[in-house]
Design a protein around this nucleic acid. Structure first.
Lengths: 118, 118
DNA sequence: ACCATAGGTTTCCTTTGGGAAAGTACTTTC
DNA sequence: GAAAGTACTTTCCCAAAGGAAACCTATGGT
């Protein structure tokens, strides 16, 4: 008798696994959590503002990650009719639903730091 | 006057950003969420069991990710005195504290799928 | 002897991620 | 008219991630 998966073999678990994969696909990369985290605090920020806020990010990566997030409808990109031209990035209502995830992760990270430093 | 970061420049925000970085460092890689998610369901599993449960993971990556997680005290590795030798992996109490994160991510992923398919 | 099982490690290879710097285009300020 | 600011894109390059397959040790079954 050949052995097969059993724990993850229920419909519920398969859904859960797929859900985790889906979410992490959207949020993969070094900067997405930082961008979303920053936009959760800052409401609406320009490109250069974001680059200043997010320590270490280069223009290329920021540009690319913003595009990814925009494609997935998590953030909006609005070109303002100002001189010089400015662009503002903000979370969509949909993107804002990520707050619980970000908060859980931040919360865990704080607790983690307290644990290892004691 | 040189422009500087302001949104992320408070002590609270710096802590939050660092916390997110910390957490994601521990959980980076393609398989860690899957391993933890599976162990949250399965309690205690052997190497081959994990490989069967986690669709697509190769022995090398599984081995490496398990080592990473063990080093960070998120899982335990126990060699059993059986013949043939077996090893069981389980979440530590500390690793179990990741459940809210995993659950939030899974929950969001399910909602996400419902959104895009409508 | 031969195969299957458990639990890996090692080698080789390809793909992806990511950074630095330069280039584009337009506008305002000195 | 030169510099500097906004908002990128493009190119070039390197390092890290990840997969496939072979290999290793050991035991038990037929």
């Amino acid at each position: 008798m050949k052995k097969e998966a059993f724990v993850n073999n229920t419909t519920v678990c398969k859904m859960k696994i797929r859900a985790i994969t889906d979410t992490m696909d959207l949020l993969s990369g070094k900067w997405k959590f930082h961008i979303i985290g920053t936009l959760l605090e800052g409401q609406s920020l320009g490109f250069m503002e974001l680059q200043r806020e997010i320590d270490g990010v280069g223009a290329k990566m920021l540009s690319k990650e913003l595009k990814d997030l925009e494609m997935n409808k998590l953030i909006s990109r609005t070109v303002m009719d100002t001189k010089p031209i400015t662009v503002k990035y903000a979370l969509t209502d949909y993107g804002k639903t990520l707050r619980p995830i970000i908060d859980e992760i931040a919360h865990w990270g704080v607790a983690y730091r307290n644990t290892i430093t004691n």
